[in-house]
Amino acid sequence: MNHPAVLSSRVRLARNYEDLPFDAHRPGVAETCVSRTANALALSGEDRGFALLTMASLGEDRRDALVESRMISRELAASPDSAVLLQEDDRLSVMMGEEDHLRIQAITDGLSLDEAAARCFAVEDALSRHVRFAFDDQLGYLTACPTDTGTGMRASLLMHLPMLAHHKQMGSVSSIAAKVGLNARGYYGEGNEALGDIYQISNQITLGRTEAEVIATVTALGEQLSETEAELRRNALAERRTATEDKIFRAWGILMNARLLPLKEFYSLWSALRLGAVLGLVPVSPESLDSLPVEVQDAHLRAYNEKPLTGEDLDAARAARVQSVIRAAKR
C-alpha cells in the first residue's frame, strides 16, 4: 500500500572500537577512527562510490548543506578532526568521530526501513571483517550513552501529518508512541514546534529487541498514522471542502507569486500545498515537493545560487527556488 504521508526512512547504527575511548575530542581518537574505518572499507573492497570528507577540509557552507540534507549530524560538522565516508547520491554515510566512533546511516524514500537497514548492515559487515567493534554478550553493541546499547540502532520515519496536526492530535500521538517505546516529535523548529507539520517517529529502546522487531514496530506506527491521516483527509474533503480548498489554493497563490519567502512562512505554505497535492487538488505530485524543505534551506540556496546570500537575499532566492521547482513539476 502507498503511504503518501511518509517522506523518508532512516536507519542509523552506532558502533565503537573496543580499544579506544569514546570521546572523539581526546587527542588522536577521531583520527584513529577515520584512518581505521577508511582502511577497513578499502580492504573489504566495498569502498567504491564512497568519498572521504574530513570536516576540516570542507567549507562551512558545504558542511551546513550536508547537515541540512541529514547526511551528517550537527555534532560531526562541529568537530574538525571528524570525517564522513559518503555516498551522497545513495544517501549512505559513515560518520567517524561522532558521539560514537561510527554512525552508519542510510536514508531511503518512502516507507522502506528494511531497505535502509540492509544498506547499513552491508557496510557494517564489510567493516567487521577487518575491525572489532565493542560488543558484550548481554548488552550487545557498547555505546557512549548506555541508553543506546544493544542494537545501537535508531530507525526513524519522517512524516508529513497536516491533518493530525490540524486536529491537534499530535499530542495524543506522542503519548501513544511513548507507550509503545517510540518517540514522535516535530522535526523542524525549536522546542515543540513542528514546522511544515513534519514529524519524526523513531524507536527509543535499543536493548532487548531485535532489529527486525524494532523496524516492524516503527513501520506499524507509520502505517497507522498514514491511514489515520488518509481518513482525516477524506473527511475534510467531504465535510469542509470549500475551507480545505481555500487554504490550499491560497498557499499555491502565495508560493507562486511571492518575491520574498521567509523560511517559517515557507514551511506552513508548503504543508498546505503538499496536502493539496496528495488530495489531487493542485497539478503537481506530492513526491515532486518532498525535496523542497531541504532545497530551500540557507546553505542549499547559497550552493544553488553560488553566492554568499544573507538576509532578504535568501528570502528572495527561496521564493525563486520554490517557483522553479513547482513549475518544473507541473503536469
Partner: peptide
C-alpha cells in the same frame, strides 16, 4: 538495574559481530 528497568529484560537480542 538502570538498563534492566529501562529496557524490560536487559539481554541483547539483535545482531552480533561477524566473529561472534
Amino acid at each position: 538495574p538502570m538498563l534492566q528497568q529501562v529496557s524490560g529484560g536487559a539481554q541483547h537480542a539483535g545482531r552480533r559481530p561477524l566473529e561472534t
